[in-house]
Computed example of a mutant assay.
Amino acid sequence: MKNMALSIKKVITENFAAFKMLWQFYEYDRSYYSKEDLELDGTFDIDEEFFLDIATGKEEGEAYLLYFNDMLCGFVFIEPTEIAGQEIPELADIFILPKYRGKGLAYLVLKQLMFKSPMAWHIAIYKDDKKARTFWQHAFKRLPFKSVDKIEPSEAEGFQEFIVEIR
Results as ranks from 00 to 15, higher is better:
Glu39Ser: 13
Pro89Thr: 04
Arg142Asp: 07
Asp93Ala: 11
Val11Glu: 07
Lys20Glu: 10
Met114Ser: 03
Lys141His: 00
Leu22Thr: 05
Ile163Gln: 04
Leu113Arg: 13
Gln160Glu: 08
Asp149Ala: 14
Glu152Cys: 15
Leu105Gly: 05
Lys150Met: 04
Glu161Ile: 09
Glu90Trp: 11
Leu91Val: 09
Arg101Met: 01
Glu14Val: 08
Asp149Leu: 15
Ala106Ile: 01
Glu14Asp: 13
Cys73Met: 06
Phe51Gln: 09
Ala156Phe: 11
Ile163Ala: 02
Glu27Ile: 00
Glu79Ser: 10
Glu161Cys: 12
Glu87Val: 12
Trp136Gly: 00
Ala63Thr: 00
Ile125Leu: 14
Gln24Ser: 03
Ser34Ala: 06
Phe25Met: 09
Leu72Pro: 02
Thr43His: 09
Ala139Glu: 00
Tyr100Ala: 01
Pro80Ala: 12
Glu152Phe: 07
Gly42Ile: 05
Ile125Asn: 15
Ala139Tyr: 00
Gly104Lys: 06
His138Arg: 12
Thr81Arg: 13
Phe44Lys: 00
Lys2Phe: 07
Val164Arg: 06
Tyr26Trp: 03
Lys20Val: 01
Ala63Glu: 03
Lys103Trp: 02
Ile163Pro: 06
Met119Cys: 13
Glu60Arg: 09
Leu38Arg: 02
Asp53Met: 08
Arg167Asp: 13
Glu59His: 10
Met119Tyr: 10
Phe115Pro: 05
Met119Lys: 14
Arg30His: 11
Arg101Ile: 01
Lys10His: 13
Asp45Gln: 12
Thr81Glu: 14
Asp29Gln: 02
Glu82Ser: 10
Pro153Arg: 04
Leu66His: 03
Thr56Asn: 11
Phe135Glu: 04
Ser31Thr: 06
Asn15Leu: 12
Thr134Ala: 10
Leu143Asp: 04
Phe140Met: 00
Trp23Glu: 13
Tyr67Cys: 04
Glu155Arg: 04
Trp136Ser: 01
Gly42His: 05
Leu97Gly: 06
Lys130Asn: 14
Trp136Thr: 00
Asp45Phe: 15
Lys150Asn: 00
Ala106Met: 01
Ile78Gln: 04
Ser117Lys: 12
Leu143Ile: 02
Ser117Pro: 03
Leu97Thr: 03
Ala120Thr: 14
Glu157Ile: 15
Met1Asn: 09
Asp47Ile: 05
Gln137Asn: 11
Leu40Cys: 02
Ile151Trp: 08
Arg167Leu: 15
Glu48Leu: 06
Tyr64His: 11
Phe75Asp: 01
Thr81Ser: 15
Asp47Thr: 02
Arg30Met: 13
Asp128Thr: 12
Glu49Thr: 06
Phe145Pro: 05
Phe159Tyr: 15
Ile94Gly: 01
Glu62Lys: 14
Ile151Val: 08
Ile151Met: 11
Tyr100Gly: 03
Gly42Trp: 00
Ile123Ser: 07
Ser117Met: 15
Leu97Ile: 10
Asp128Val: 05
Phe50Glu: 09
Ala139Ile: 02
Met21Pro: 01
Ala106Arg: 03
Ala5Ser: 14
Ala18Phe: 14
Tyr100Phe: 10
Glu165Asn: 07
Phe75Pro: 00
Val11Gly: 01
Asp93Val: 07
Glu79Asp: 11
Leu91Ile: 12
His138Cys: 03
Ser154Gln: 02
Glu39Ala: 13
Ser34Arg: 09
Lys9Asn: 12
